[in-house]
Design a protein around this nucleic acid. Structure first.
Lengths: 373, 373
DNA sequence: TTGTATGCGTTATCAT
DNA sequence: ATGATAACGCATACAA
């Protein structure tokens, strides 16, 4: 006589006991046993478009629920060659737009079943060093918001890992890119300020290894040169509040007076510069000095600042990057695309944007610059 | 006649050709073949403390380098039962300390060979929904900076996934926790302000599902009650700049005048409140109104604000959480520990912290509160 | 629709 | 120190 057919519940209970005894994990075999089907049937039940009968599906799902079964992604990826992970390389410098970027990326990737594996970088140049780790994890793709040397890009090709470079333009045109045109942004800002009569510019740039800061600075310099204005005075900072203040003082000391306008490589430095001018040095902004930022992070539109700056459409860019990496994962062979976004000018109230009604030739904020040099 | 013994280089080249032809991945077998050793020898070479002779090691490493071989983490984790990934659950609300938290966590985890897999949450309550994904990825542990319902905590136990709850105190004492004592922080702030003669308090709290905001608010209310002061007026916000401004206006309307002191559930709201008071309503801070924040994110110490607030030792807390999850991964059975950190009071300049020399009994900032009610 | 059999790439155990 | 062999947990080709 065969034993009475046990209920799924009873079968599950005994299976759980056995699992605990052997301290094994719950596998699809266990589920199959409890559901009274084959392992492959179980596997199919967890694959979206597979062909399973309603009844088996129900039995399997019930058994799975009773056993707390979830497919093991590691085992799955071994055979599917997909880990459903996208690595994101990020420099600390991105600091203030870090949250926006990451949440937007995740939001876009999650519907595709992909998750973000984070690789924060202490410096842009550190990128190369984390690559080894990256290959091990077999991520499906990488979004790099960090500078990659040509050798690193080559590695991506050898390892056949899709790569999207974020907010930086590499010389190599064959890499997929989503970015603002930082050089154009620099030009635009310089042009606007020059049109308002500013002549002597100062730049508080980012640290030397930042491609972004350099591109912006070049844009400004180019534009000024084309307009026949004196070259900007440049000091470098570390993208932080303190650097903005220090940068301002250094610029004043070096120039022997207050320049007409100061462009900072990011908003936090601009805010530092602004606070230092107003609260520490008693300089009126924009009365005596125009200050502009770049990046438009949230604090820049707080009432106390209302910074003149350029807004990068970060959320859109993040979405674009997510889209692109997903497409690339599906079809690795598609031709490289450089998706460029325009920064949007934010007038704010820290820069004079129109020619002063009086003294059009020599703005009063320019204290005999030539006499001193 | 046996063929002449080929060099490693030559052997590697032909192996690469074969791999490309079959579009296979590079495996330890390929390396073994090229290096002229067994596959297990290759495996051992990539395991830190294994016993391999110098010469085999050298041959293997050379072959591996030529082939661009890296061990496949998915395959490895299948047998070692370690994915070397730690999931981090994070609400968007954490916004401003997001970068600090994530970089610190990563910094602490990287030396242990672990990486952060990110799970951003749209709301605290969304946590439960991402858990399914989480189990699939087989992460070694989870750091949750989000509220977890008891059912979710139970799931962690069933799945035997180590959990550290970050900056929230669950009632369940059996969960490992690293947090500030938000209630104590609220009490401390209330006590300091009350000692300076403030009597009518307003609170701009966070959205209703935030455990942290609620705890802080309770602390304030408790302390005021113990001191025999009137209960605080409470409005809720969304932890953002705009909420601070709106909150202030609502409080004034509801109270029929300016309260003595306003405590905001985070610094960004405090800054919004401050800007609104000063720039929009023309209220002198701290002359007519004291404003205090909680959280001490970076902008709070910018010169324009210099906010009175409480600083959470975020970096230390992150480090502690990383340590704890690592220990827990090694020894899952250790007893639960609640690691509490004290918030540090930052005086700032937006709250009056001493009794006014004149009119000690009824501060001038309190316009006949009882007459109106 | 379902079950059988095989392979994904590694680590671990056990001889040698 | 080294090599053969057996898991690990799943997806898939194929046969039924």
């Amino acid at each position: 006589m065969s034993p009475p057919k046990r209920t799924i519940e009873a079968s599950a209970a005994s299976q759980i006991a056995e699992l605990a005894a052997q301290s094994r994990r719950v596998t699809s075999y266990d589920v199959a046993l409890v559901a009274g089907v084959s392992q492959s049937a179980v596997s199919r039940c967890f694959k979206p478009g597979a062909s399973v009968s309603k009844t088996t599906f129900a039995r399997v799902m019930k058994a799975a629920a009773l056993l707390d079964y979830v497919p093991n992604a590691a085992a799955r990826s071994l055979i599917t060659r997909r880990t459903n992970m996208v690595a994101v390389l990020l420099t600390n410098r991105a600091n203030l737009y870090y949250p926006e970027l990451l949440t937007e990326l995740s939001k876009q990737l999650t519907p595709h079943g992909k998750r973000v594996l984070l690789f924060p970088l202490a410096s842009e140049s550190e990128a190369a060093r984390v690559l080894g780790d990256l290959w091990q994890f077999q991520v499906d793709g990488v979004i790099a918001a960090a500078h990659l040397p040509a050798t690193a890009v080559a590695e991506f090709k050898r390892h056949r890992v899709p790569l999207v470079v974020f907010n930086r333009l590499l010389e190599d045109l064959s890499v997929h890119t989503v970015s603002c045109d930082h050089r154009a942004a620099g030009r635009m800002l310089a042009a606007r300020l020059a049109a308002a009569g500013h002549r002597q510019f100062g730049i508080i740039s980012g640290s030397k290894d930042s491609v972004v800061a350099i591109a912006r600075q070049q844009g400004v310099a180019e534009q000024l040169a084309e307009l026949g204005l004196p070259p900007p005075l440049v000091v470098t900072g570390e993208f932080d509040y303190h650097s903005g203040a220090t940068g301002l003082k250094t610029l004043i000391a070096r120039h022997g007076g207050i320049p007409d306008a100061i462009i900072c490589a990011n908003d936090v430095m601009a805010i530092g510069c602004l606070d230092c001018a107003r609260h520490e040095l008693g300089i009126s902004v924009p009365g005596q000095l125009s200050v502009a930022g770049l990046d438009a992070v949230e604090p820049s539109n707080w009432l106390s600042y209302n910074l003149t700056t350029l807004h990068q459409p970060m959320a859109q860019m993040a979405a674009a990057a997510a889209q692109q990496i997903c497409r690339l994962i599906e079809r690795p062979e598609v031709a490289a695309e450089r998706q460029l976004f325009d920064a949007q000018f934010i007038e704010g109230a820290t820069a004079r944007l129109h020619l002063p009604a009086t003294a059009p030739a020599a703005p009063f904020s320019l204290p005999q610059p030539l006499a001193i040099m």
